[in-house]
Structure formats: structure tokens, C-alpha cells
Design a protein around this nucleic acid. Structure first.
Lengths: 372, 372
DNA sequence: TTTAGCACTCCTGGCCTGAGAGTGCTAAAG
DNA sequence: CTTTAGCACTCTCAGGCCAGGAGTGCTAAA
């Protein structure tokens, strides 16, 4: 019957996908002809639809239902049919402005990126904090007295990373005392990684260049613990946002989708767990970190079974060889891919620029829109 | 017919509520007699149930359905029927241990409190960061060079609050330069509030005790901006967690609740929006901040209409006259109140102890279990 | 190759029915 | 006066049935 993907079939596939993405209803031959004023009859379209189905790009829930794209259909669309768009300039400007307003605060960038991704794509977003390629390297420490038996330690690491931690003092100490201890340790351990610090401490006492007081030893322990938890956390952490946006997609509204409400709720619960636990994403993140450009994973292409109904659009952001994170959107496979992709590309480029500024590096990761 | 709330009616009301909380199904007269081996016949119980209904403590969805507690029923239960329990010691110990592991990190306390509340009550939790009674008061500033045109400012405020912020330098500056500027400003503005700083700056130049360079003026502007956003944020922010826990309550699983799945989903969406936006909670927070002990708001008692199906159990935590926040759980009115209340009480007391340590203050807010 | 026509399939919603659960009432018993 | 047994009544729930409609797939003609 069929004879490959003719021009016309591609055009029809594109229309079907656009229509389905827009309406969330299976699309029928007649509706296509009417809406897009095709110069062929519904019957012709039906033949082509049947061919596309045989080629594996469309399916059928049951005999008398319209066509729905398969994962392969979306894939072909993303790869070949979709024109590469960029986010409208007006939107770019708005977003840039929002980032400008939180300049200087990395945590806020992450939060903002998540919020913007969610809002402009109407799907859930996820952002991992940027992780340095190098292991954490200590820089200096400040100790600030809070009251006589408690102080605040501000730990500064290379790459502008700061952690704060309150410490209980073994005995009352003067500010001057604290200042001196902090300075000694800053000096002693400067530029060391976690491993280095541990090694330094492991040396027999007589080989140590500096005799540490018990108090100072306690501080170092605290430092080591802080570095450990930081490295653990930064490996795991995934910020996500836009649950509500995603949940307002028709897939999650049983009334709209004419289907077992059961399943809609079940789907929802699953979506929640994916976002919360990052299961189904775990293997993806390192993969994206190791690749360039925007990655699109459609439905069952993801090995994780619970992701079969979801697509993910991800990109790395950061500074080459220095620091990198991943951000993107997740939503039902019926996703406005062009918009998602262009948004993810833009935001990742923006975040890269911001980080590059921080690192004063010219070589940013993503190709794509500049910050102007 | 009726003659007030007799002993027996109270006992039956208590059983009905316990049973309903446990099973989430309307409870029938016969089931009660059977399960609790009452020495009366189902008919007698029916009469009592009818009386309780007339008194407003129970309802009926339709003629041939079991009884369900009303808001007033829950209220009476919480006020008079429920024994005041405390969290089992084993659980207390586990929780305390978890807090011990993140000692010294306020942000982590908040996150942990949310997670623990959610897990042990199987409902959603909410925690507002502790807010100082006093306005934010500047303490000192450090400037750390990141590279030649960028530095990291670490802003320290009274009460152990630290903010970090990257700043772009107008020109290359040496570390020594940065150190001196930071020291000058720390000295100049120490112990001032936002208002005070603005006032100081507003004075004509000749009256200023210290001539600031342009660079230093820029830093102060940054400081002012950081203080502003901090005060704004701390007023609004509500951390929430445990969405999944709450969503595994039968109320959100249409199959279990024999009802329009529609409504379950709608309810869910609403729950999400409440948690995300804090609408329906907004008015509650200041109220709780101004009161002692655990507050229980049941269903429609909350003025916000969207909260009609939810109950909230909240408590203040913090240090009297110094710093305070609110934490609690939110879930369907069919809630295990004794457990929720004892958990909220315990966590708030724990958080108060932790904060008190930070503030070295003896006068903690909540009565209740000590840290041991 | 395209198209008109038409039979066919399958979902959908409405209606009905029987079973079951639980109540409310009544009248008798304690 | 309270408790209880008995029973009719009400309402939900699940299943079956049917008509309407949407959309396809096939066939045969243009």
C-alpha cells in the first residue's frame, strides 16, 4: 500500500500534530480538511492518514476515533518538520528584565528560571543547581560572634559558593579570638579540596606545620562536614516548579479527555512523584550534562516506564569546563515542542551568560541567543 | 426528641469520628455496634445518631448512607472528647536525631520540619521561616574577590542572618581595597536598620562623618536592595511539603470515595493552589503568630471559602519577643487531629528550642515537651 | 490517483432495573 | 420511659440495553 513518507504525508503529519497539540482531541480527516482548507477531499486525507499509521507515526485508539501521534510521530516532527523558532523578542526582554532584578543571587536565578520555564511553556520545569566540574575548594572562613557561646561561621569556597553554619563554642571567646582562629584556618587550609583537608588532618601531629587548638580542630571538623553535605546535596538536588501549570493541561482533567477519571488521577500522582523524587530523570541528567544543545526525550524513548506518557526537554547550562547544571521542562508527550525547545534554549543561554559573567569566561556552552 | 449531649451520645460521637477518620467511609449504626461490641442494639444507636444529627454534630449525604461528622462535630471532638496525647518517645527521639544531623543550618531546619510534619501526619505541611520581631539590623560586610571585576559580598545581620550577593566592580580592585571598603562600611553602618541606613545616606554630604567613594555608595545601594527584598520575602514566604502524602489520602482517590472523580480532581487542583499561593492561609498566619499554643481551624471555620474542605493545625514557634514563625499541617477535615496536634506541638517546641539556643534565651514560646 | 458513497465499528449518554445498604418509623417488650 | 425487633422506604451502585453520532475503511466510479 504505502510508498514512504511523501511530501504530502509529511505536511499532513505536521498538521495532525499541530492540531492535536492545540486541541488535545484525536484529529479526524474531515476536521483537518475543513480547518486548513485543504484542496483534497477527506477521503484522500483518510488514505494518507492510514499510510502514516502504517508507517508508525500515528495511531488509533479505536476504529471510529481520530488519529493521535505516536512517539515516533513526535520524534519525526521535532527532527524534520518543526521550524527552529526562537522566543519572541518581547518575551526575551521581559525575562531578561526579571533576571536583572535578582542579579547577584544565584539561588534566585534558579528559582526564577524554574518559574519562567513553567509559565511560558505551561508545563512543569526542573532546574538543577550548577555543579562545579572541579570538587569544592575551600577559600576562607569568617567567624562572627552571635553571643558568648555561639558563633556564625561563613565558609567561602572557590567559585563564589558560600555556606553559613552556626557553631556552638566550647567556651566563651572574644571576637578577637574568633577572628584569629578563622584567619589561621583560612590560611592553613586555603585552596584545599575536601580530600586535601582530610589528608592534611591525617598527618601525624609533629608533621603539621601549624599546631591547631582543640577549638580549631572542631572548626575543621565542621568544615569537613559542611563540604560533605554540600557535595552530596548538589549531586541530588532538583528544583521543580510549575506543577499547577502542568496540571491544567487537559491530560489531567478527566472531563476534557473523556476517559476513566481514575487514570487521570493516577497519572497525576505519578507525575507528582516523578517531580518530587526525580526518578525517571536521574539517568537523564548526567547524560544531558555530557551533551550539547537541547535534548528532547519523547515518551517511551525514556527507559523509565513511568515516563512513558511524558516528554522532557532539557539543556545544559553553565560555563565550559567550570560549572554546569541542567534545566528543562517536563510535560505530557502532547507538548508544544517548538515553544518548549526555544524557551529552554533561551533560558539555558541566559543562565550560561550569567554564570559566565561570574566566572569571567568567554566560552559559554550553548550556541543560541546572546544576552544582547 | 433530643435532650442535649448525654454521656452516651458523646461516646458515640467519639466513636463515629474515630471510625470515620480511620476508614473514610460514612459509618453505619450496625457497623459501630459490631466493631466496638456495644451493649445496645443498632436501633438504639440509630436513635442516638439521629439526635446527634439534630444537634448538628453529624450529617447524612443521603437517606441510606451512614453518618459523617460535621465541622461542629470535629470541633467538639477536638475540644472535649480527644485526650491530649504526646508523640511517642521513640518518634520524638528519631526526629530529634534528624534535627541534630542538620544542626547549625536554619534553612535545613525549616525543610526538615516540613518533611517530618508531612511524613508523620500523612498530610501536607507548611512552615514559614522565622521572622524577627525587630526589623533587620545590619552588622557587617565582607567582600571577597572572585576575579578582577567581580566580588562576593557577604552581608551579616543581627540574629545570625547572612545573605550573599555578587557584585560587579566598576574597575579592577585589589583584595586590600575590597577589605578596606568593607571594613569602612561595616563600621559606618553597623547596627543600623534599613530605615537608619536610608536616613544616614539622605543627609547632605557635608554632614556625613565619612566620605564614601562612588564604589562604596554602590555597595550601600546593594545593601539596601538586599535588605528590602529580604524583608519582603520573609513576610510572604511559606514553605510547603508533603503534597504526595496528602494526595494519598482517600479524599483524593476517586475509586475509594465513590464519587464523581471530577470533584476529586477539582479538589486536588484547589489543594495545590492553596499550598502554592498560600491563599486561604494568609490571614491565618498573623493570627497564629499572635496567639499561644496549637491552633486548629476546621473546614468552614476558616473564612476562605476554598478551605471549606480542609483543616489546618498550626502553631507558632520561636523565641518570645525576638523571632517567630509558624508551622503546621493542612489536610482534609477528616484528619487524625490528636496525632496532628501532638506532632505540631512537638515540632514547634523543638524548633523553639533550637532557635532559643541560637538566641541564648530562656523564654521559649510554647509550653510542651522539652528537648530533654 | 482521487473522490463519493456507504456500511461498519465503537464510543457515549440516557434509561432502566435489581441488588444491597442503611435508615426511619412503628409497635411491642422491658 | 427506654430499648428493641421488624419492616417499609430511600437511595446508591453496577450492569445491561439502546439510540445517536462520529469517524473510519472499503468499494467502485470518475
Amino acid at each position: 500500500m504505502s510508498a514512504g513518507l511523501t511530501e504530502r504525508r509529511q505536511a499532513i503529519l505536521k498538521l495532525v500534530i499541530q492540531e492535536f497539540v492545540e486541541t488535545a482531541c484525536p484529529v479526524a480527516s474531515e476536521a483537518l480538511v475543513r480547518k486548513y482548507r485543504l484542496n483534497v477531499s477527506p477521503a484522500t486525507v483518510r488514505n494518507e492518514l492510514a499510510a502514516l499509521e502504517e508507517l508508525g507515526y500515528l495511531t488509533h485508539l479505536h476504529t471510529s476515533a481520530g488519529r493521535v501521534p505516536t512517539d515516533a510521530g513526535y520524534r519525526f516532527f521535532v527532527e524534520n518538520l518543526m521550524e527552529r523558532t526562537t522566543l519572541p523578542l518581547a518575551e526575551q526582554r521581559t525575562i531578561r528584565h526579571q533576571f536583572y532584578q535578582v542579579r547577584g543571587e544565584l539561588d534566585q536565578w534558579i528559582q526564577l528560571a524554574g518559574a519562567v520555564l513553567a509559565r511560558t511553556t505551561q508545563n512543569a520545569s526542573l532546574v538543577t543547581p550548577p555543579r562545579a566540574a572541579e570538587p569544592l575548594r575551600f577559600r576562607s572562613m569568617e567567624l562572627i560572634a552571635i553571643h558568648d557561646t555561639m558563633a556564625l561561621a561563613v565558609l567561602v569556597f572557590h567559585g563564589g559558593i558560600v555556606k553559613q553554619q552556626t557553631v556552638t563554642l566550647d567556651a566563651a571567646r572574644s571576637s578577637e579570638d574568633l577572628r584569629r582562629s578563622a584567619a589561621r584556618l583560612s590560611d592553613y587550609l586555603a585552596d584545599q579540596t575536601l580530600g586535601g583537608i582530610e589528608e592534611t588532618l591525617a598527618r601525624p601531629v609533629e608533621q603539621q606545620p601549624l599546631a591547631l587548638t582543640d577549638f580549631e580542630r572542631g572548626l575543621v571538623e565542621m568544615l569537613v562536614r559542611a563540604m560533605q553535605t554540600f557535595e552530596e546535596q548538589s549531586r541530588e538536588q532538583i528544583h521543580s516548579d510549575g506543577l499547577i501549570e502542568m496540571l491544567s493541561q487537559p491530560e489531567f482533567i478527566p472531563a476534557l479527555v473523556r476517559e476513566d477519571a481514575e487514570r487521570a488521577v493516577e497519572r497525576l500522582r505519578r507525575a507528582l512523584e516523578i517531580l518530587k523524587s526525580g526518578r525517571g530523570l536521574g539517568t537523564l541528567i548526567p547524560q544531558v550534562l555530557a551533551s550539547d544543545g537541547v535534548q528532547v526525550i519523547i515518551g517511551g524513548e525514556n527507559s523509565a516506564d513511568e515516563m512513558r506518557e511524558y516528554s522532557v526537554v532539557l539543556a545544559r547550562y553553565g560555563v565550559e569546563n567550570a560549572i554546569a547544571g541542567v534545566l528543562g521542562v517536563i510535560g505530557p508527550t502532547r507538548m508544544a515542542y517548538p515553544r518548549s525547545i526555544s524557551t529552554v534554549r533561551y533560558i539555558s543561554s541566559l543562565m550560561s551568560d550569567l554564570l559566565a559573567e561570574l566566572y569571567n569566561a568567554e566560552n559559554r556552552i550553548p550556541e543560541g541567543e546572546a544576552l544582547e
